[in-house]
């Protein structure tokens, strides 16, 4: 089981449907690996059900029920079978694996020194979603955040000033106040899903170089 969880407010945003897709993906991946958070999401959905039930309904237009009844007979062609999904990667938790075009190894990794990365959900404006692979024992460049960065551990481990993340599914959340320098554990490359809702601002000595790379 993971030891570091998304906070209750993040789980609530997930249950209520308020999260943008990339953050939702990260939370769903964690929850797939965590019984405790599954139970919490079930509670939060039950809460949603109660609040939903308490709403004053808005009457529907004339004939709404008849229209619905008429459609019950129609074949389900409307819900066209979703296009055959890409194979994805079965070694990852399903929500995440389903987003990949194929095996982890077959993805278009870009090498940046001790870090390799693949961009996911690239159509999503304002939010970067990446798989990061950090060489064992090396550090990410020091950086601060203009927004929030969510990091979910998939393999290996890493530490920052806050904690040591070493269980699959551990989630680290860093906001603007954190100037951190995650370091991958020695012994095994660290694989993470990183979701950043504003561009990173690099503060270390090699910052300009990495900022340049980040724009490539």
């Amino acid at each position: 089981m993971p030891a570091y969880h998304p906070g209750p407010e993040l789980l609530m945003d997930y249950a209520s449907g308020a999260l943008p897709e990339p953050v939702s993906l990260l939370v769903a991946t964690h929850v797939s690996l965590c019984r405790g958070c599954q139970a919490e999401v079930a509670r939060l959905e039950a809460l949603g059900g109660v609040l939903f039930d308490e709403l004053d309904g808005e009457p529907l237009g004339a004939g709404a029920l008849d229209r619905a009844l008429a459609r019950l007979e129609l074949p389900e062609s409307l819900e066209a079978a979703p296009a055959a999904k890409p194979k994805g990667d079965r070694s990852l938790p399903r929500p995440l694996g389903d987003y990949l075009e194929g095996d982890l190894e077959s993805l278009p990794w870009k090498n940046r020194g001790s870090v390799a990365e693949v961009e996911l959900l690239s159509g999503h404006s304002g939010i970067r979603t990446r798989l990061l692979r950090i060489k064992a024992g090396t550090a990410l460049p020091q950086h601060t955040h203009e927004g929030t960065e969510y990091t979910l551990l998939l393999a290996g481990g890493f530490s920052d000033a806050e904690a040591h993340y070493q269980r699959r599914g551990d989630v680290a959340v860093a906001d603007t106040s954190v100037d951190h320098r995650p370091v991958a554990d020695a012994g095994e490359d660290c694989l993470c899903l990183a979701v950043t809702d504003a561009p990173l601002r690099l503060t270390g000595p090699v910052a300009r170089y990495f900022n340049f790379l980040a724009r490539l």
Partner: peptide, 17 residues
């Protein structure tokens, strides 16, 4: 909306809740 998978193989070895 990505849905979590309550049957994730990563969980199978774990105790039932």
């Amino acid at each position: 909306r990505p849905e979590f998978d309550p049957e994730d193989p990563g969980l199978r070895a774990e105790e039932e809740p």
